[in-house]
Design a protein around this nucleic acid. Sequence first.
RNA 1: GCCGGUGUGGCGGAAUUGGCAGACGCACAUGACUCAAAAUCAUGCGGAGAGAUCCGUGCCGGUUCGAGUCCGGCCACCGGCACCA
Length: 799
Amino acid sequence: MKYNFKDIESKWQKKWEDAGIFKASDTSDKPKFYGLVEFPYPSGAGMHVGHIKAYSGLEVVSRKRRMEGYNVLFPIGFDAFGLPAENYAIKTATHPRVITDQNIRHFSEQLRRVGYSFDWDRTIDTTEEDFYKWTQWIFLKMYEHGLVFRDKAWVNYCPSCKVVLSNEDSQGGKCDICHSDVVQKSKDVWYLRITKYADKLLEGLETVDYLPNIKQQQMNWIGKSTGAFVNFRLDGIEETLEIYTTRPDTLFGVTFMVIAPEHPLIDKYADRIENMDAVRDYRAQCAKKTEFERTQLVKDKTGVEVKGFRAENPVNGSKIPVYIADYVMMGYGTGAIMAVPAHDQRDYDFAKKFGIEIIEVIKGGDIAKEAYAGDGEMVNSGFLNGLTNKKDSIARMIEELEKEGIGRAGVQYKMKDWAFNRQRYWGEPIPIVHCPKCGMVPVPYEELPLRLPQVENFEAGEDGESPLAKIESFVNCTCPKCGGAAKRETDTMPQWAGSSWYFLRYIDPHNDQAPVDRKKMEYWMPVDWYNGGMEHVTRHMIYSRFWHRFLYDIGVVNTPEPYAKRTAQGLILGPDGDKMSKSKGNVVDPLDIVEDYGADTLRTYVLFMGDYGAATPWNDNSVKGCKRFLERVAGLPDMVTKDHVPELESKLHKTIKKVTLDIEEMKFNTAIASLMAFLNDVYEAGKLDEEELAAYLKLLCPFAPHLAEEIWEKTGREGFLSLAVWPVYDEAKTVDRTVEIGVQINGKLRSTIAIPTGCEKEDAFTAAKANEKIASLIEGKTLIKEIYVPNKIVNFVVK
RNA sequence: GCCGGUGUGGCGGAAUUGGCAGACGCACAUGACUCAAAAUCAUGCGGAGAGAUCCGUGCCGGUUCGAGUCCGGCCACCGGCACCA
């Protein structure tokens, strides 16, 4: 058979579409499988090979599940709000709606040409009103439950994009979108109280099947630490200073205090601070630094002593100085620390520079040289003296603090509340009204969706305001509560909003009464297998788990966790081994591959190219290798014989087993390798029988479905191969009658022998000794030990 | 600095979890077909050696009849977190 991939692929894509064979049913006696891939942002550039790798993995799993008798939901949609469309709108004065629709059409067309078995009836678009209506609905529910608040805050601001960024979007002090430097700016910010869910998000990780490194990254991100809050009386003013520490056991070693430059204590007691000018200068210096500069680890600590009051150590009454220094952050703990220079390197560096006393309270280090953070016997520490275990001394100290009412056990998280607004047009409008009388008033549920108004000019407003602020008909409204004149919030939600719940909408994409029908949701949830990129593990994954857990707590969904299992594909690097990027000119366009080699070759190649979870460079020659493989597959019909071909039987069953098990572990590369190996065996035999061909086509179908369907049809088989029953291997038939095993002398391989599979110990030894070479090697030596591992190895230990 | 991961031919990568290292593919070489090239097919392909053999999975050591795999100590690279108290 000639392999004309172009005809074959368009033919079968149409047939599948016409027959609707990949549509999921909301009621079925079959077991369900919900496979989810991260929906794309429909960029103007179209699909990237990264999309292909990400989708092809679960595509294979989903196709296999269907053939195994599951009712499969494998949907796709578009995460279409976001900056690129808006920036393009600003440049070309085209409405983002127009561009978005155009890009979605283009993307869909590309996806269809790869032949994915998506249920296209359930396609969603986060920018459609009937979708974002429910995004707004969830926001209002969160508002109702006290998870939304507004605060003036120092925020990460991108002067180029003119938007406020979350910490997540400004990692490393660079804007995630345009990579320019982020500056600090004071703004009114909407926050989602994700920190309230920190513990639930941590606990939830214990109940799900995520790759270990994914769990690890989420735990790092949440960053829980346990310790204690301790109150220090301030001598000279009627005030206490609360600090957070993970090492309350070192309290006797405290020789100074440090508060963050932004600490409110400074302004409150400005008139009592004797050197307020110096303090002000220092604060001004710090304000100039970006968050990034401030969080750089520097040995050279800076700071200024605050003169006018001193702190009193609650356990020994000693009077100690208070400094402001920018190595303490206002955003973590209480913005103040107790400094224990003997046992914390940062405090140590500071103490050395400012000539502050260093008191050792834990033995084991050399505090003349550096701080000692290890374990050891407590000294100079009153009631803790003599204790040698960190845990014990911490517990003992907390007990004492709580008894005396000067402190308490506590926990802290690195994760911060989620800054949930952007000064942009192309996002979900935040459904809140500002009323001069009633304050903030939520838009009533029945008024949702709060639609984006038509706008002519998409440029940001004054001082980074949303373009919506310029639309008077949008801004001016009546207060839903008192009916008086009011103004609408003009900020929109960040890009992460829609993707925080989209998987629920696939279940019931056209529902206008609820985000999702209860019954359908109970049937489909949780997502059985979610695959995506590592780059979304700490943002999208955390956000959506948070939203879902909230929806669970208010009874909207039935599972605390949205995703039962999460895996991640590795990057595809450019042919040069570097990350693909336009500027490097090493980008591979998947549609070029479809055009030149066919979708089946592309799909097979991205899964064969290497370990699915690892980053692998693209290789054009290997693409050709996959094409060659499929061409050889196309030759199979000519080799079919009516007679049984027993010599292929055990090879086939081994292949069925390998492919079946490997797909479950995402070891697609070895699954395909075994398909290639079997094909080599068929070519060597020169023939295969009808049953062997049928089973082989089924195994190939998830990877190269167009070609597999074509051969299925050409060889006179009925119905869609995509709906055929997945082959089952017979364990007994995967075992050969004879097996070739190695024979070692003193652990070194000397020869091999062919013996019956599973043969007895003595028979194996006899056979091994009968081997000419082995016989000559053991002759005249003393046989000390004989080892036999059935079907593996014989080893003679001789002297 | 802390946490996680990886290190195997010229390249991408295999190795049933302690049992014949290098499956499968690429590249390369030789041969066949061809006027020729491409495509295809066949054979070879870790290193050294004419050979029997010897060496070989980042490095050093250990356990074991036997180590890519287990243990101890290093080195290199990748990813995440990071003056987080």
